[in-house]
Simulated assay, not measured.
Amino acid sequence: MNSISSCEHAPQALKRWGIRAIIAESYSEIFFGNCVAIGVPCYKVSHEVADKILAWIEAHPSEELVTSTESRTLKMGDETIELTLADGPRGQFLDGSWNARAALLANADKVQELASKLPYMNFLK
């Protein structure tokens, strides 16, 4: 049985399709959180900026857009556009802490040590 919620399918499908960042006017909390959990930054822009980006894509369909989490910018052609990304998720992307599984695996000994001290974990012994 698959333990993945259907809410997680959309971000995963986008990532598997090759989408490495998303730019939109708004996001649901669940979608945003699921994107962060799999390493896909979700940048926000105003309606006017979103329209500008869409117009540029329509005029340059084979061109690549480049986002920078560090500078919170989008590079499209010769133009650089400022993007909004909250400090919390931005920090997670910059330091790699968005990847909870990797953090747990890297600290498996510490996790096991802490778990052994928890009274409700002793029933496993």
Rank of each mutant, 00 (worst) to 15 (best):
V66R: 11
I38G: 08
Q92G: 12
T67H: 06
S3M: 02
N107C: 09
A21P: 00
K110P: 01
F32V: 05
Y27G: 01
A106Q: 14
K44Q: 15
C7S: 08
V36Q: 06
G91N: 11
D87M: 13
R90H: 13
D51K: 14
Y27A: 00
D78I: 07
S6T: 06
G33H: 04
A13I: 05
S71C: 10
S97T: 14
S71R: 13
A108V: 03
G33V: 00
V45P: 07
D109W: 00
L124P: 02
H47L: 10
Y120H: 11
S3A: 06
E113H: 13
P89M: 13
L114E: 12
S97E: 04
S5Q: 12
G33F: 01
F93P: 03
A21V: 00
G39N: 05
E63H: 11
D95V: 04
Q92V: 02
P11F: 12
R90C: 14
I30C: 08
N99I: 03
T69H: 02
A59C: 08
E64F: 08
I81K: 09
C35D: 09
V66N: 09
N122F: 10
D95Y: 07
K125A: 13
L104N: 10
S3I: 03
V45L: 12
F31H: 02
T73H: 02
Y120F: 14
A10Q: 04
K44N: 15
V45M: 12
G96F: 03
W17R: 03
Y43D: 04
S3T: 04
A10H: 05
A59Y: 01
R72E: 15
V49N: 06
I53E: 08
L124W: 04
S6W: 01
T67C: 14
E113V: 12
S46G: 11
L14P: 01
K15Y: 07
H60R: 10
A103F: 04
L83R: 02
G77Q: 05
A102F: 09
N34Y: 03
A115I: 03
T84P: 04
